[in-house]
């Protein structure tokens, strides 16, 4: 880890001003990704602005039925929140299936949105990596890529977005609220907040330097009351997903009235399964349709030989999630 300075901010404006003034500055929240990557010399800020004291940790229902989750609310707080558990089981489940109890106590929701990929080439400061050092190449494509993405990939980057809860939030079309240096605020649609790697995998979000996430707003999504998060991995716990599915489903007379689907572990960003959703709306809730929807969604997959199994696994996981909900037994 390079030498750094440390300052603790008491209010957002001060923190934002301090970071935006200097490209060598960065916010520090839970630190679970940041301190790790500082030590790996993957992140190299000179100045850290500790924002943990900012009053951004509340979880508040909004008049329009949405839920506003403060950016510094910890994963464990959000998972335990009664409103979250009642309205959005998939969020609570995604959170509790992520990381470990200790990490969930530390990691903030805003930080979760900003967490970096687990690609071992990215994490090794001396390997080529287009995300870390644009133009140096992507050794993962022909390297060890079992955990890498099959959707949203480019010839420049195949790193999987690692978040669980972001998958649920993608399914729910959450909005990410930020504040910039002039105290201006901005609300990003979830899909706009996570950029595909394309030819600029170093650019993961549309944020300006110093722009601070203040909250995540989850809209009212009635179908989400019957939702689940299914996570498939080698180890039973404490591991990133090989494949995950956030799903919500409502039926009317055996026909799908509403559905939300998003995938994790297989894509370069939290992957809302729009094609599958489109196929399913109005369809009969039966396995053949679930399978077809999954096939449609994965039809654009571009796997490597080592992660080709994820294409099949993702489809099976989607079918499992939908069948579980259709059979009336969400986890």
């Amino acid at each position: 880890m390079r030498p750094i300075t440390y300052a603790r901010a008491a209010d957002a404006a001060t923190a934002i001003a301090a970071v935006s003034a200097d490209p060598g500055s960065a916010f520090l929240a839970g630190g679970t990704t940041e301190v790790d990557l500082l030590r790996q010399n993957v992140l190299t800020p000179r100045h850290l602005i500790d924002i943990n004291d900012l009053p951004l940790n509340s979880i508040e229902p909004q008049p329009d039925g949405a839920l506003r989750i403060g950016a510094l609310a910890r994963m464990s707080d959000v998972a335990a929140d009664p409103l979250v558990r009642e309205r959005y089981p998939m969020i609570a489940q995604a959170l509790e299936l992520g990381a470990s109890a200790q990490l969930r106590h530390m990691a903030s929701m805003g930080g979760n949105m900003m967490q970096r990929v687990r690609c071992s080439y990215f994490r090794d400061a001396e390997s080529p990596c287009n995300k870390r050092e644009p133009g140096t190449g992507c050794p993962a494509i022909e390297g060890v890529s079992r955990g890498h993405a099959v959707l949203g990939v480019s010839e420049h980057c195949v790193a999987t977005h690692p978040s669980d809860v972001a998958v649920a939030l993608a399914a729910l079309q959450a909005r990410v609220h930020t504040q910039g240096p002039g105290e201006e605020t901005h609300a990003y649609a979830f899909d706009d907040f996570f950029l595909l790697p394309g030819s600029t995998p170093d650019r993961e979000h549309p944020l300006a330097h110093g722009e601070l996430i203040t909250a995540i707003e989850v809209p009212a999504v009635p179908v989400a009351r019957r939702s689940l998060y299914l996570k498939v991995r080698d180890r039973e716990s404490y591991e990133f997903a090989l494949v995950s599915v956030a799903a919500a489903l409502s039926l009317v007379d055996g026909t799908i009235a509403d559905v939300r689907l998003a995938l994790g572990g297989v894509a370069t960003r939290p992957w809302r399964a729009m094609h599958a959703e489109d196929f399913l709306i109005g369809a009969v809730a039966q396995r053949a349709n679930f399978e077809q929807a999954a096939r449609v969604e994965l039809s654009t997959a571009r796997p490597t030989p080592m992660n080709a199994f994820k294409v099949e696994l993702a489809q099976r996981a989607m079918v499992r999630a939908l069948e579980t909900l259709a059979n009336g037994s969400p986890a």
Binding site: T5, A15, I49, E211
Partner: peptide, 20 residues
């Protein structure tokens, strides 16, 4: 969208006591 303001930034950083 971020208006650069190094002078303000310097001031703010001083205001929040940078250490190290």
């Amino acid at each position: 969208m971020s208006a650069q303001g190094p002078a303000l930034g310097e001031r703010q950083r001083a205001a929040i006591e940078e250490r190290g």
